[in-house]
Design a protein around this nucleic acid. Structure first.
Lengths: 205, 205
DNA sequence: AAATAAAATGAACGCTGTTCATTTTATTAT
DNA sequence: ATAATAAAATGAACAGCGTTCATTTTATTT
């Protein structure tokens, strides 16, 4: 029996190794410039081996997108030490943007690329658990805000969606290089300045 | 001289034909599933001919992104008949979302994909004129709002950027199928409901 | 040491974007 | 009208892509 257990662990280890190699290359040279052959070469295995452990490229991308969410969730969980929900909400948006900028390829994979969603369609569990969990943390924080008397006249879910969109939009414009190509007066601080407008706005709700 | 003129017109016509074929296929089956061979076949020309009229695929994608902006600008210009800037701003966001949903592939090309921006880097004029013009219309409207006494304590550019991000974020989440995969209570109306929260918010600024 | 099972392999397939020598078509000069 | 020239269109060929699968290598069991 111990052999079977060990085999299972070895399989998991190699799967993790492939993902690790893939992520390294993604960060280094971008997702679209990373090939299965690159990944195989990176970890000194053949192309065929990758396909023993993953159904296809979408499978790899989906697993990597899940890893990204684990990281983002840990960013969020840290902020849950903050008692005041409004203060927490403000910090969450900032952490979200920080994550997106520092992990732009992963962010794109998690929130923009089709691959992870297409993988869901082919799989048994069609729910986007990763997205639900992360968004749940935002929703919960906003719910706490409303329970505390903030944001009167607003509805939890639509407001949470609006906040998510606002921050997500900033991240997208930034990582897709649309900010620096629109001639802002202060292109270097517009992201910060824009987020500041959002903070001011929150106070007026 | 008339020959040269005619030749020039023919060249323009064929270029336009290629773009028309490309756009048709993009809408039909998505950008990433459209190949140069597809485009050539669609208009009954050879692959080589496409490369006589366009430097590479990015060149085609950039021209198509420009065409998309012409359409979006016309959406916006229509709304400039509305006198009250705040009313206009509200309608602009709605028109923007409508455009994104009805032309999701084009929208992705215009605001998310790397191709048009990469083409800019290789060209003489590195400015993103299309983006500047469209965003200029938003900026101008918000400026009018501030001049009229709305949005006190806010700054034009950062606020315009925030508004753009908010609406852009909603569009991205929708067209990248992140909305319908997060279990909203009312997934069918969340986009509308979320935009409504934004409208309520505008009133409080 | 032989038989069996599991894991890793890499050549091959049909795609992709791109190039460029060759052919076809159109224009100009005689 | 015919020959010479210029312009335009072509498609085979190249390297690289994701993916498959018969074959080989390695590990386990008998």
């Amino acid at each position: 029996m111990s052999t079977i257990d060990r085999k299972a662990k070895e399989k998991e280890a190699l799967k993790a190794l492939i993902l690790k190699g893939a992520k390294k290359l993604f960060v280094e040279k971008g997702i679209e410039h990373t090939t299965i052959r690159n990944i195989a070469e990176e970890i000194n295995y053949s192309v065929g081996t990758v396909y023993v452990y993953f159904k296809d490229k979408n499978d790899i991308l989906h697993d990597l997108h899940t890893i990204g969410f684990q990281e983002l969730d840990s960013y969020f969980m840290e902020l849950y030490t903050i008692e005041d929900p409004k203060e927490r909400l403000k910090k969450m948006g900032f952490a979200y943007i920080k994550f997106a900028i520092e992990n732009s390829e992963m962010y794109d994979l998690m929130f923009n690329l089709k691959a992870p969603i297409e993988f869901l369609k082919d799989s048994e569990n069609e729910d986007w658990d990763e997205g639900c969990t992360a968004f749940g943390l935002v929703k919960k924080t906003i719910e706490e805000c409303i329970n505390k008397g903030y944001f009167k006249g607003h509805n939890v879910e639509p407001l949470a969606f609006m906040v998510w969109s606002l921050v997500h939009g900033m991240c997208c414009l930034e990582i897709h290089q649309r900010i620096k190509n629109v001639n802002f007066t202060n292109p270097d601080t517009i992201l910060y300045d824009g987020y500041n407008e959002y903070l001011k706005m929150i106070e007026k709700l």
